[in-house]
Each structure stands twice: as C-alpha cells, then as structure tokens.
Design a protein around this nucleic acid. Structure first.
Lengths: 204, 204, 204, 204
DNA sequence: GATGAATGAGACTTCATTCAT
DNA sequence: AATGAATGAAGTCTCATTCAT
C-alpha cells in the first residue's frame, strides 16, 4: 500500500511546478473537454511558455493520466477510510456514500476530468485507472452484501444498487454546483437518505 | 406544440444526406469527444469529401446542435408519452422511469453526445436545449409530487429525488453497455425498482 | 514496365500543383538538407500557405520519396536507353557513362536530394529505391562483363569497376558545378575517358 | 605548421569530455544528418544532460566545425605523409591513393560528417575547411603532374584525374561498408589499381 | 563542470471552413 | 450537392540555447 502510494506520487510529478501545471490543466480540461483543450492555454494560464509543460509531462495524455491517477487514487482512499467508520453496515453505508458524494462535489472540477475523459487515455493507462475504479466499486458492494446478509437491509440486487450509488456520485461532478444545489453537505445528505432507501435499511 | 415540433424538424436537416451525416457525427463525437472529433473524419466515415458536410450544416457546432436537439426532443416526447400511461402515480412513475432509462440505453451513443457535449454549444443553442431538459425534469417532479400528495409515496424531497432519478438515467448513457449489464430491459427494471424505493411507493 | 512506369507516375503526384511543390522541395532540400528544410519554406517559396502542401503530400517524407522515386526512375530509364546505343561493349560503355554523368550534372540539384537524403526515407520507401539503384548498377556491370568476356576490355574486377564508375557519377551531383568544371559535356567526356582506361578498353 | 597544428588542437577542444562529445556528435550527425540531429540526443547518448554540451561547444555549429576541422586536418596529414613515401611518382601515387581511401573507409562515420555537412558551416568556418581541402587536392595534382612530366604516366587531364581520384575517396565514406565491400584494404587496393590505369602508369 | 527547468522560436501537421469547379 | 485544393489559425511537440543552482 505504501509502495503503491509512493509510486502514484512519482508518476504524478513531484515538483511544485508540476502540481501547478496539473491544477491548470484540470481547469482547462474541465471547461472545454480534453480534446478541445490546448497545451498552450494550460501553460499560458499559469504564465508559462508553451514548451514549459514538457519537462514535466511528456505528452498531453501523460498530463491527463496524472490527473486521472491522482483523482481516482484519492477517491479510493477516501472511500476506503469511510468504509471503516462505524460498526453496522448501515453506519458504514452512510459514511461511505457521504464521503463519495462529498468528494465529487468538493472536487467537482478534477472529478469531471477524471470521470469523463477516460476515453482519451492510452489503453495501458486506462487499464490502470479501470482497476482502481473497480476497487472503489467493490467497497460499496461489500457493504451492501454485508448489510443484506446480516438482515440490516432488505433483499436487494447488489450489482444494481452499487451501480446506482456510484452513478449518482459520479454524476454529481457533471452538474455540481447547480442553482438549486450548491452546498455539498445538502446533496450528500439527500443522496445518503436515498441510498438507505434503495437498500431498505432499517431505521432507528 | 405542432409548430415547435416541425420547427425542430427543420433545424435538424430534412434530407436523407443530412440524416446520414448526423448519424456519422454521433459515432465520431461519442467515440472521441466533440473537441477531438474532426469534420473530415465524419465525412470520410460515410464516403464524403471534407467539404460535403457544409451544404447541410454550416458549422460543426450546428451539427452538434442538431444532434442535441433531436436527442433531447426525443427524450421529452418519450417521457411525456410515458407519463400519461397509467392512472396512479406509481404506475406513471414506473412507466416514465422505464422509458427514460430505456431511451438512454437504447440510444446510448446519441445520448452520450446529447448529454455530455452541451458545453460546446453556443450560448443561444444551449439555452434552447436547457429549456427542453427542464421540461423533461418537470415531468418527473410532477409525478413525484402527485404521488406524495396522494399518499401513494412516503414524504420525500422532490428536488433531490428528481435529480437522482434523472441522474441515473443520464449516467446510463455514459457506461452502457457494460460487461455486466448489456440488456436495456434488465437495467431499466432494476432502476424502476430503486426509484420506487426512493420515493417509498406502497407496493401491492 | 508500362505498369510500373505509370505506378511511379501516380505515386509522384500528377497534378500541376504537386509538380511545383516537388520542384520547390528539391531546391530547399538540396540547399539545407532534408532535416533542416522546412515545409513552411517550401510552401512559401511558391507562394502557398503552410498547409497547402498536405493535400498533395501527406508528409514531408512522402515528398522526399516522390522526389527520390522520380529521380532514380529517371536515371534508370536514361541509363537503360543508353546501354542499347551501340553494338560493341566499348560503344555501349561510352554511351552509358556519358548518360549517367550528364544526368547527374544536368539534374544536379534533384540528384543531390535523391542520392544523399536516402537515410531519411522510411524503411519501406528505402527498399523501393534501393532496388531501382541496384538495377542501375547492373546495367554497368553487364556491359563491363560483356566487354571483358569478348576481349574488348582488359581483365578487370567488375564489382570494383562498377562501383567506381557509379561513384564518380553520384559524386558529380555533390560538387557540380564547380569553378573549374561547370560544363556538363566536359566533365562527362573526361569521365568517359577515365572509365575506358579503368576497364582497359582497346582504342582504335 | 606546428603553429597551425596546435591552433587546430585548441579549436577542437582539448578536454576528455569534449572529445567524448565530438565522438557522440559524429555518430548522431552521421546517422540523421546535421539538420535533423539534436543536441539533446548527442548529450543523452553519453549520459549527459542537455545543457552539458555548452561549456565545451558554444553552438551546435561549433561542434560541427570542430569535427570537420579535425577530419580534414587529419586527411591532409595522412595524405601529405603518404606522398613522401617512395621515390617514383607511381610509388607515391599508390601510397597516397591507398592512404586516402583507407582513411575514408576506416573513418567512414567521421568522414561522412566532414564531407557531407559542409553546407551547414558558417561562411567563415567553411572558408577554413575549403582551404584545407584544396591543399589535399593539390597533393594528388602534384604527383600526377610529376609522373606525367617524367613520362611515367600517359598524358592525362590532371584536373579531371585529381577530381576523379578524390571523388572516389570521398564517396567511399558515403557507402562504406557495403555488403560486398566491408574490408578497407580490399577497396583501397582496387581503387589504387584503377587510379594507376586512369593515369596510364607503366607497370613493372 | 554539470543539471534541468525555462524560453522563444519554430517544427510538422491538422483543423474548420471556403470556393471555384 | 459534391469535390478537393487552399487558407489561416492553431494543434502538439521539439529545438538550440540560457541560467540559476
């Protein structure tokens, strides 16, 4: 775990400049889409010349990969930590859905890039990200299975419930913030409630 | 209504050639994203020369708009029709969620373009599409409100429930088909069940 | 033969514009070397915008290939024709060396590109050109062998003689014209005399 | 002479590192051509960072000049020494042609750069190299003139013979080694024989 | 002497779009 | 309607070179 964590850190780029470039790229990728975004524009947005990106990221795709890796690693960390908070499946589901939705709302710009630009990754890079995403999904599945087996939840199609809950979270990064919902806590609380209903969690 | 419907038809392009171009553009836009897609590639994919698109669509953005307009008009039609099927709110919700999810699964390629490339529309065109989308949302809100008021459903935050249900539908077009879920009926049935649980619909 | 000839013609580009581009490219490639030459400069030298080259030649390398193919095909044609002029090996050698040297002097710019930029061809294209060059060499070898077998020439290492004669011709394109030798006929006549001495041709 | 020799040595760069850089540059220049070669690639090929070349050679062209100067000075030395070996013009021609061809075969990589990248030198640097090359040519011309005047050789156009002999030598660096001729001694012996025939040297 | 990020210019190439045919 | 050469701008990326460390 520590090993993979530091491997990730190295692939991201460790210097201060590379972090600034990543942040700038997130903004531009999110605003215009990866395909329409220009490396020129990314560089210019932080006062660099067009070529200055390349000592840090060899290609535009490498930059997207670094952003994706950072994002998906971060969600997995957050979700994994949340899944340990609480004794009952219900408490764990509450904590985890909350964390997942909060992450997508708080980091909606980076999340948008990480979630919606995957098709532009190279096949090799895509494979790495896909595996992290599967790990994240498994966290939800495990909780739902555990809760159902323990009789805390109603019988439920675990696959569909997992898909629905993660879908809701991912989709937050597409529209958040909206005129109606611009408070991450509010939408997280609302989606936690819906998730509990989906699995038929008993209430106290 | 009839007026707007035929207006839509005219803006789409009526000729057989324009329909082929639209279909080709959907494939390319969906595969690479609007920004990365080229008009040359669209033309070439149906055996046309680069210039041949322009008698039909004056700009690449006009082509995206036509696709978006066709898509969102179509969902609204489908959802509106479904909302009239059945007497009770429960029946209407089942019918409508089913129709919405089915549409996004069956038309996942076109839906992907219509739902995820909106940022590339001109402000004027975006406004038109946004209004149609709001109409579609209102169909769901109205059913949920009606059901709650009638005591068919549990008390529920209508805004959040509407957002969640439409989110689930939209997000289908992002991932469908997957290895696990490649049958539109199956995912639609699963999501209908979850929607009913979200609103706390009484079951017979 | 007719087939291959017309195949060559098609690969060269048949339009008037592509011929102008090829001519412009020869000048720039010869003056600065393929690597240092710019497509921009080629285009500008005939009043075109930078992108205007690309409908005719998909890459800079394709342009080099067209030039190489045209050049080497042309030498082979010239040399083959010359090798049929005359009954004796001596007459044929005179005619062929003369034609080969004249070609490299008259077309020294194009010849320079064709002969000295081969390393920049793709492996596939290089293979095609290399085969044509071998055919050209074979013409000389056959004449020398024939002359030696008939007792017209002294015994001679055919391989070395062929190599030397073709080397002299190729090298003409490197330096021609010089202050001392700027008349193609003069250098051709001089080299014909030396070639006859190399093979020990009997004189009348 | 001593003066100019040490002046050359200073312009070349005297340190061990500069010699390694020159050697690396020869490889890259020869493989891709001066224009297409990058200083980065040269540095990387000997494990240096991009900037590390510049303390030794102020510009890429200075590096080419050092290589050219070293090469052409070396040929002149070799040829001058060989021209003193032997009493008769025939012996001296044999020795000198042999030395010239051997040098171009043994040092074919460096020779290629020195002989074929001259156009990329600055005018000032080109002038220096051109003078050395003229000196080298004069060595051949003097021998041929002497031999002809002494009746050792047939009457011959000295200019053409000199040009042909030096052409053959230079051109060796273009193609050597080939599948057929990869032994420097063999090609040198063959060209010596041809040179003797060119000038009509009497044989013992 | 060496490093490596940064510059400013420019590389090849592709883009959406126009227009004469 | 369709072609395809051409434009002008912009794309990603590499270049030789500099400079603070």
């Amino acid at each position: 775990m520590d090993v993979s964590r530091s491997a990730v850190r190295d692939e991201l780029g460790t210097s201060k400049a590379s972090a600034r470039i990543r942040a700038a790229a997130i903004e531009v990728f999110a605003a215009k889409g990866y395909g329409a975004a220009g490396t020129r524009e990314i560089a210019a947005s932080i006062g660099l010349s067009p070529g200055a990106v390349y000592p840090h990221y060899k290609t535009k795709e490498a930059l997207l990969y670094a952003i994706s890796l950072e994002g998906h690693s971060s969600v997995l960390d957050v979700v994994t930590a949340a899944a340990h908070a609480g004794a009952s499946a219900t408490e764990r589901l509450i904590s985890t859905v909350n964390a997942y939705v909060m992450w997508h709302a708080d980091n909606h710009t980076g999340a948008r890039v990480a979630q919606y630009e995957l098709r532009s990754l190279s096949p090799e890079h895509f494979t790495v990200i896909a595996e992290i995403r599967r790990s994240t999904s498994r966290v939800f599945s495990e909780i739902i299975e555990t809760g159902a087996a323990a009789g805390e939840f109603d019988p439920v199609d675990v696959g569909v419930a997992t898909l629905a809950i993660t879908s809701l979270g991912v989709d937050v990064s597409r529209w958040f913030p909206s005129k109606t919902y611009s408070d991450a806590d509010v939408i997280a609380a609302g989606y936690v409630e819906l998730a509990l209903r989906m699995v038929g969690a008993r209430r106290s």
